[in-house]
Design a protein around this nucleic acid. Sequence first.
RNA 1: CGGGGCGUGGCGCAGCCUGGUUAGCGCGCCUGCUUUGGGAGCAGGAAGUCGUGAGUUCGAAUCUCACCGCCCCGACCA
Length: 435
Amino acid sequence: MRRSKLFMPTIKETPADAQIPSHRLMLRAGLVRQTAAGIYSWLPMGYRVLRKIEQIVREEMDSTGAQEILMPTIQPSELWQESGRYDDYGKEMLRVTDRHDRGLLYGPTHEEVVTDIFRNSVKSYRDLPQNLYQIHWKFRDEVRPRFGVMRGREFFMKDNYSFDIDAASARISYNKMFVSYLRTFARMGLTPIPMQADSGAIGGDMSHEFIILADTGESTVYCDSAWLDSDPLSLDIDFDTDLQPIVDRWTKLYAATDDKYDPESCPVNEERLYTGRGIEVGHIFYFGTKYSNAMGATVSNDQGQEVPVEMGSYGIGVSRLVGAIIEASHDDDGIVWPESVAPFQVGLINLRAGDAACNEICEKLYSSLSVANVDTLYDERDERAGVKFAEMDLIGLPWQIAVGPRGVKAGTVEIRRRGGKREEISAEAAFSRLT
RNA sequence: CGGGGCGUGGCGCAGCCUGGUUAGCGCGCCUGCUUUGGGAGCAGGAAGUCGUGAGUUCGAAUCUCACCGCCCCGACCA
């Protein structure tokens, strides 16, 4: 992509409304624009990142055997009356009425819809287990949206739902999701901590929030300080084996969210206990037969008895992750994208647009990188060098190549990682470094 | 939902208290010249229903009331 063609409205000054770094940077780097309180439009740069994250989530879901579906954003109120949540949910649920005076709502989550689909189609234990996911928009009418896309009212999320014949099997499904989440986040350069979370009426140990430690996080969290230098997960995992040992390893050290933390019973002593802020990027939850009972989602077991299906639901905040990754990875100059989610891999800067030799080398590099499928943003505008460098730093592409008259004379270009040291090498060497 | 704050060219702000010519400033934008390796300089220029609606007044960005929108703290949430 040529910079001159790209719709990327960057701003030099800090927008007054944005408080935390990720929000400021997302506005300054032209990733998003606010359309209403807690509601954002995604511009090309932001949308590219959003799709990268979405794709990682999708690939990881698929690799566990979950299947992608797409449910409606608008749901009928009746389903929620059936589950009993219509009255419980409160004002956060956006309720609307259609022209026939029928009650509808903009889905804040999809347990009811997916349970309805399931009960109408699955009747036998032979069709279990089943795991269905979707990635799309949800709406929760938060009283107070804030922190940009980290706490929006409309948000993009992956949610999935597991169906099992019994509790033991449900645990296997739960473990798959647990491990899958660790892998998913690791691919984005994040190492979240799975924390015990409130498991509601069901109780038990099968509810975890995946939390990224960050000063700007909105929830208070408590964990064994050994978490702070824990090793990242090995990505090589066979989901058909027993995953319990991996889950055990990742739940051995204490970690709990605010509502689950109890100073009386906390097993970690004070010196060892880390108290900080965190961003919740995922939540997995086993809720047994809560909805299957209420909504009559039953299957026949191998004894011929009709039993309610065991369910769990699992969420990843895809749009929130864009902000969360920036919170975890930025510096004074701007965003520092991990390669896996960067909107472009390479920023190519022509320091002297108009200079024949610079143009030639840039064009050659640009086209060969394109052929090699390396996403490159080529800044060929007639701007000063400082403007281009500053903007490249702001948008945080993993690699920068600068081509200027000085280097051209010496037969070199400059390459550097975002935030790293520049290195002068030949254009050919730069090319092979990036492919 | 409780408390607080803010709405003035695209962005950031001043002006309001103490009403009175053509509403300013910085950034950005356009034109020209100069410049050209870390957000350039000079000159010229375009762009504003002062959130909306009532009211007070000879006269309202400025005072009063209502409404709308947005932000912050808290309670709540992926």
